[in-house]
């Protein structure tokens, strides 16, 4: 898997949202905000190719339409706002996660033996992030990754995410509402307004 590829959207359009042209450099975090129902999640689903859409997306020199769906999603990984778990135990959903990552997110190794049924929504959210990151994608699409977390945990998770993103040089689209969080993590901030994607002025949010 070649890391450190840019993610480029070329006239990508889905639903009410007008065509989006964007280039995300390796390691760049683009925060995306907008009213609920404005199409943020659907844009992420289009980038991950989970819904039929117009336009094209590129990861480095690989076009979305030129490689099989699962291979694209394996590289451009979407972490949804609500995670789903299909097996009985937490560990069955992971390919051998790093000890350091588990600890950074506030878990001991025994979490892998836990039954999925006993996880709280916050635990599910943190584990879902680790589940995705431990598969070593080449780009990340995060849909409100800290929505169910208290402030202290949100900071902790945020710092861990940013460190992993910089380390692996992942281009990231990060849907967020909290302007303080956007100030902390974003290299760029876009807002969906009236069906178009507008880049916020640098001074307005840094």
């Amino acid at each position: 898997m070649s890391h450190a590829d840019p993610l480029r959207l070329e006239r990508l359009a889905i639903g009410e949202l007008a065509e989006v042209d964007l280039t995300l450099a390796p390691g760049e975090i683009l925060c995306l905000s907008g009213a609920s129902g404005s199409g943020k999640s659907r844009l992420l689903r289009a980038i991950a190719d989970l819904e039929p859409h117009d336009g094209e997306a590129w990861l480095g020199d690989r076009a979305q339409s030129a490689i099989p769906g699962h291979a694209w999603r394996r590289a451009v990984m979407l972490v949804p706002a609500e995670s789903h778990w299909w097996a009985e135990r937490v560990g069955e959903h992971f390919h051998d996660p790093e000890e350091a990552d588990l600890q950074a997110l506030g878990f001991e190794r025994d979490v892998l033996d836990w039954s999925v049924a006993r996880l709280s929504s916050g635990e599910k959210q943190r584990l879902a992030l680790l589940r995705a990151v431990s598969r070593e994608p080449a780009a990340l699409l995060l849909d409100e990754p800290t929505a169910n977390l208290d402030d202290a945990t949100a900071h902790q998770v945020e710092a861990w995410l940013v460190a992993r993103i910089r380390e692996h040089g992942l281009p990231v689209v990060w849907v967020a509402h909290d302007i303080a969080q956007i100030r902390r993590v974003a290299d760029r901030h876009c807002r969906i307004k009236g069906g178009t994607l507008e880049t916020e002025k640098e001074g307005a949010w840094t």
């Binding site: 991950a48 989970l50 769906g69 699962h70 291979a71 999603r73 394996r74 590289a75 990984m77 979407l78 972490v79 949804p80 609500e82 995670s83 789903h84 778990w85 299909w86 589940r131 995705a132 598969r135 994608p137």
Partner: peptide, 20 residues
Amino acid sequence: RGVIENRLMLGQRWQEAIGD
């Protein structure tokens, strides 16, 4: 559908995502 799509998001093939 949530489970199937989440498995797809993690890069599983469709056969694997709907296997169960």
